[in-house]
Design a protein around this nucleic acid. Structure first.
Length: 432
DNA sequence: TCTGGGGTCCTAGGACCC
DNA sequence: TCTGGGGTCCTAGGACCC
């Protein structure tokens, strides 16, 4: 494949941890090795599979599948685990640290994936005895794979290619514990034969639409002129067209490791154990979630410009209301007030709710914000709020989040035996 | 006993201003 | 008196990813 002269070919890798959550659990408890394992919860609970071991996948279990359904298709000795997010974050940090030894240009995509740019690392590789003339990244990839496994016991797969897109697709085909290198001149043929499901950004909805035009493979899509896809599907069409041809979408074109940090969102949401129509439960849960989201915001010294409240009805209809603040804030009282002003109005159907959530939008670092607090009329009140919030943060740091919860949320916190992830939450509807 | 939770990005329509 | 466009901000919703 010819890559345009504006973006000279690069040597990129996608490193992807195999069945990440399950692998971390197995590293901690080797008795799980070889058995079907599902992380996500117990079969009796309302929830879905977050990660299924390859043994469980053989029986049909998949990420996203409801737990009870996974239990039905898996053998009786399948182990169901809740998972431990903190352990996964720590494992991910360790792996990323190892990857950083091979190149400074590392770009984590999620906890279990990262792009590496190895362009210009040839000299080092040659010195280690690779064949001169052309370079295969096989040896380097094998070294990375071995090092990660030796130091963390976590298996990885690696895709190597000239663009993010090609490396990404290659890694999917390499799984599990594989390495697949696709050189620039092989990329078009490699991609063309694959079903559209392998193309990043072509989800189920888009594939349905494309199927109506008889487009089934990546090659089919690559054959359609870009402007046709652009006029039919807008920006998404352009992205897919580029990726189908092995190029990176505009989103991905910044050099690896140099993508500008974005404004982020912070959200906390929960499904009730049982759908509820009790306003005290809904209000209490939203208060609790608001405090959790705001605590995460404050922990990183961030401010939010807007807040959103999400309600999901029993029939799965989902609605959200977003409101901007006059000034960016991390003040718990202000955010709670806004949330409380939103949800009673938005809950306008006489239908039970199954999920509620709170999202903080347009989040950015406090230090980037020019505070003109001194001039504002609410200065004194703001200072008091701030000192109260600081004190609460301090206590929570020492005794855990559940040690101090405001207002209506307190009714919802029932102290069940402590788990490694802190307090479990139950709604009055399901507590005895 | 259907369908988690935490994210990113894109778009459409209305308000409002010039 | 009637009829315009752009540009930008804000809100709501949808698709996708892990």
């Amino acid at each position: 494949m010819q890559v345009s002269s504006a973006s000279p070919a690069r040597d990129l890798m996608l490193v992807d941890l195999d069945a990440f959550y399950v692998s971390v659990e197995r590293a901690r408890d080797p008795a799980l090795v070889g058995r079907p394992v599902i992380v996500g919860g117990k079969p009796s609970e309302r929830g879905v599979v977050a990660c299924a071991s390859y043994e469980a996948r053989q029986h049909g279990a998949r990420a996203g599948m409801p737990l009870f359904q996974a239990a039905r298709c898996c053998p009786r000795d399948t182990v169901f685990l809740h998972g431990d997010h903190r352990a996964y974050v720590e494992a991910s940090r360790q792996v990323m640290q190892i990857l950083g030894r091979f190149t400074p240009r590392v770009e984590p995509l999620s906890l279990d994936e990262a792009y590496l740019d190895l362009t210009g690392c040839e000299r080092q590789a040659y010195a280690k005895g690779a064949v001169p003339g052309w370079h295969s990244w096989m040896k380097t990839a094998e070294t990375i794979q071995r090092t990660v496994f030796e130091e963390t016991a976590l298996p990885i797969s690696i895709g190597v290619g000239p663009t993010r897109t090609v490396a990404n697709v290659a890694s999917a085909l390499a799984k599990p514990r594989g390495i697949l290198e696709v050189r620039a001149n092989e990329a078009p043929a490699f991609l063309a034969a694959l079903p559209l499901g392998y193309l990043p950004g072509a989800g189920p909805r888009m594939r349905d639409k494309l199927a109506r035009f008889n487009l089934e493979t990546i090659g089919d899509l690559a054959a359609v002129p870009e402007d046709v896809l652009a006029s039919t599907f807008g920006a998404v069409g352009v992205t897919l067209s580029r990726r189908a041809r092995g190029l990176d979408a505009d989103l991905d074109r910044a050099p690896i490791g140099e993508r500008a940090p974005k404004m982020r969102t912070i959200s906390r949401a929960t499904s009730f154990a049982r759908d509820t129509i009790d306003p005290d439960v809904v209000g209490g849960m939203l208060s609790y979630l608001t405090q959790r989201a705001t605590a995460a915001l404050r922990e990183e010294r961030l401010l939010a410009k807007a807040v959103g409240v999400t309600l999901r009805y029993s029939d799965f209809q989902t609605v959200e209301t977003r409101r901007r603040f006059r000034e960016p804030t991390a003040c718990v009282r202000q955010i709670l007030e806004r949330v409380d002003a939103i949800w009673p109005k938005r809950w306008d159907r006489r239908v039970k709710l199954r999920l509620v959530g709170v999202t903080l939008y347009d989040v950015f670092a406090e230090k980037e914000h020019q505070l003109d607090l001194f001039e504002s009329p609410g200065f004194k009140a703001a200072r008091l709020d701030e000192r109260l919030d600081d004190a609460v943060d301090h206590i929570r740091k020492r005794h855990g989040f559940g040690a101090l919860v405001r207002g209506r949320a307190t009714a919802l916190i029932e102290r069940v035996p402590r788990t490694p992830h802190g307090f479990r939450l139950q709604t009055p509807a399901c507590s005895r």
